[in-house]
Simulated scan of single mutants.
Amino acid sequence: MPGIGLIGYGYWGPNLARAIAEVDAAALSAIADMSPAALERAGRRHPSARLLTDWRDLIADPAIDAVVISTPVSTHFDMALAALRAGKHVLVEKPITDNVFKASLLVEEAARRSLVLMVDHTFIYTGAVRKIKDLITDGSIGDVYCYDATRVNLGLLQKDVSVIWDLAVHDFAILDFLIEARPVAISASAAAFLPNSPETMAHLSIYFDDGAMAHLNVNWMSPVKIRQTLISGRQRMIIYDDMQNSEKIKVYDRGVDLAEGQDDDRERRVSYRMGEMWAPQISTKEALITEIEQFVHSIESAERPPSDGESGLRVVEMLAAATRSAALRGQPMELVDLRRAS
């Protein structure tokens, strides 16, 4: 049973600590945070965990086999690199780092030491997203044409990252998990509506090497919370609404078919398929529990997790491209060029 140490007990850290404690195959051995108040809360909820004010002491503890990092993104690189160099497996909150070069260094370090490097892209461990993956993999949807997502809410405004790094990161991770094709270019338009603030809203377009396209609408200044995604395929279409308590996924047997032949009259060649809708059964297991179980399994078996370091690196490449495009008012950024520059 691996002993796991958690660095950071602020916003997301308590959720990770609870999930670690609930997984029978793992032990929450230590928690580190600079805040005495945070450590006091952690001690009440996890009395068996060692409490530390310096994360370096946690990494140096020989009883710790793996480190989970839940701190601001600007600190991820130094903490993760120190943990890897100390021979610890690492699970780091999304995004893995704040730039491509640092992410690539972590991936190289983990590979060199044969350690698990995993990113907390929680959505790909939800029952809904995994069911969509199954529907795409088994051919039920057909070739994926389009992924169109709206991810908006009021707040939480961040000081250190823009809405692209806070919200679009989820869809980048989901796209990397669902679609075999790879993005080749990204265009983004963004705006900041508050003084001395990062961008609070953005529209992004992602172009894939097989002709598929994704469009993302992310916003911190919406009066309502919306989490809805349309996935259009050659055979069927999916509506994924994460705000629904039941029927989060609805599959529609609908689409457009073109008849064979060379007739120039398109109206005579096009037919619209209006089939039934069904809502497949999905697992209700908490995504964080599944994620921690995957982390432990990967440590024990050396099996590559779905959200491994390389996946995290690809997500950061997309974030960097989108940020650069937004700074240039929507100019498309080629990911190959960005990768070479990094």
Rank of each mutant, 00 (worst) to 15 (best):
V90D: 02
A103V: 06
A214N: 14
R234Q: 15
I31P: 05
D257A: 15
A326D: 12
H170V: 13
A181V: 05
I289L: 13
Y11N: 09
H297M: 01
L106C: 02
H297S: 06
E109T: 02
L156Q: 10
P95W: 01
A214K: 14
P47M: 08
W165K: 00
R269I: 01
D210C: 13
A110I: 04
E286D: 12
D257I: 13
K250H: 00
M221V: 05
L157P: 04
D120M: 00
V169C: 09
D308Y: 12
W165A: 10
E267I: 08
I289Q: 12
S70I: 07
V129G: 03
F101E: 11
D134F: 13
K102H: 07
D166N: 12
M277S: 12
V119Q: 12
A49D: 01
K250T: 04
I96F: 06
N153R: 14
F177Q: 01
V336Y: 11
K88P: 15
D265H: 10
Y252S: 11
E293I: 00
V100W: 02
V256H: 00
E291V: 01
Y11G: 02
D166P: 04
A188E: 07
A32T: 06
G127L: 10
E109K: 09
V161K: 10
Y252Q: 08
R254I: 08
L288I: 00
V296T: 06
S189P: 03
L328K: 11
T122G: 03
V73R: 08
I282Y: 11
I206E: 09
K248W: 05
D54Q: 00
R329E: 08
Q262P: 00
G5D: 06
R182K: 14
V336E: 15
P305F: 06
E267P: 03
H76A: 04
L216P: 06
E293N: 00
A279K: 09
P332R: 10
V315D: 00
C146T: 14
G8T: 08
D65Q: 14
P36V: 02
P95H: 07
P305V: 05
D57L: 12
L157C: 02
D253A: 13
G261T: 04
M277I: 13
V100I: 03
K94W: 04
E267N: 14
F177E: 02
S70D: 11
A27E: 09
F193H: 14
A37W: 08
M201T: 14
L167F: 09
G139C: 13
G13I: 10
L154P: 10
A80P: 07
M237R: 15
I64E: 12
D65C: 10
G330Q: 03
T53W: 01
G13C: 07
